[in-house]
Simulated scan of single mutants.
Amino acid sequence: MSSRYYLAAQLPAFSINAASALPITEDYFTDLCTRCLDEGSVKILKSLSLEPPRVQKPTGSAFVDAWYDWERSLRYALVQVRAAKLKKEFSVNAQSLPADIVQIARTASGMASPLEAEEFLNTERAAVLETLRPIDGFSVDSFFYYALKLKLAVRIKKFNTEAGMNAYRAIYDRILGEAT
């Protein structure tokens, strides 16, 4: 347990949406964790992703499972809303998708700019991470929370309006080409 206190004391606070550089890298954070956490926890930490596996399977952490369940539901809702806009079939049990997540997907899909939609989705993701945040700041789940928050912050910092619009247009043109 004392190694977790040591680890927590070394972790700098940061804001996901801050314009400044992040005070820690993912590699450095992972390195710290490998020195302070047990092997099973490090394995879970190294496998963490902002993109959950398509098939739900237990990770060994209730926190990570809850995050993956929420993110998976959001992604299915986004696909469902986008498919409906394109008049394409997408089969997902709509009853299993929570109404609040479907509303988030509808709001994001209705935004004029893909960048604006991604910023909105990232704000929602950050809010969910905060609601799932473990109360015990020294628990293993609190380090998983920190890792996901760091991954989300790194992702947000990679956004580039011009490059994003070019990629969006290319994907959209490809989709329209397949639809005809």
Rank of each mutant, 00 (worst) to 15 (best):
T34M: 01
T34N: 03
S91D: 09
S96T: 14
A99V: 04
A62L: 13
C36S: 07
E89T: 08
L32Y: 04
Q95G: 15
D69F: 04
E71A: 05
F90T: 12
L22M: 04
T59F: 00
D69Q: 13
A66F: 03
K85N: 14
P53E: 02
P23C: 11
L45V: 03
L78Q: 14
S91K: 12
V64E: 05
D69L: 09
D27K: 15
E39C: 09
G60W: 00
A77M: 03
L37V: 05
S96D: 06
L48R: 04
K88P: 04
T25K: 02
A21N: 15
Q80W: 03
S47P: 08
L86R: 12
L37I: 06
V42L: 00
E89L: 04
S20F: 06
K85E: 10
V64I: 14
D38V: 06
W67P: 12
V92K: 02
R82P: 11
S91R: 07
D65C: 10
Q56Y: 08
S91F: 07
K57P: 11
R54H: 11
F29K: 10
N17V: 13
A62H: 14
S20N: 12
R35V: 07
S73P: 10
L32V: 14
F63H: 00
E89H: 09
Q80N: 12
F90Q: 12
L97S: 05
R75Y: 01
P53V: 13
I24D: 07
A18K: 14
Q56M: 11
Y68P: 15
K57M: 06
S49K: 07
P53A: 10
K88R: 08
L32I: 08
C36T: 07
V64S: 09
S49R: 02
D38C: 12
P52S: 13
S20R: 09
V79R: 08
D31T: 08
I16W: 01
R54Q: 14
N93R: 10
L50A: 15
T30V: 08
A66P: 10
P58D: 05
D31V: 12
F29S: 15
V81W: 00
A94G: 15
A99N: 11
V92N: 10
A77V: 04
L22S: 10
C36Y: 05
W70N: 04
N17E: 09
L50K: 15
L32K: 15
G40W: 03
T59D: 12
A21M: 00
A18F: 01
Y68F: 02
L78F: 02
E51S: 07
Q80V: 12
A84G: 10
D100I: 08
P23R: 09
W67N: 05
E51P: 03
F63T: 03
A84T: 06
F29G: 15
L78K: 11
A84H: 04
A21L: 01
Y28A: 15
A66V: 04
V92I: 03
V64D: 03
A77Q: 05
S47T: 06
L22E: 07
K43W: 05
T34R: 10
G40R: 14
L45H: 08
A62S: 15
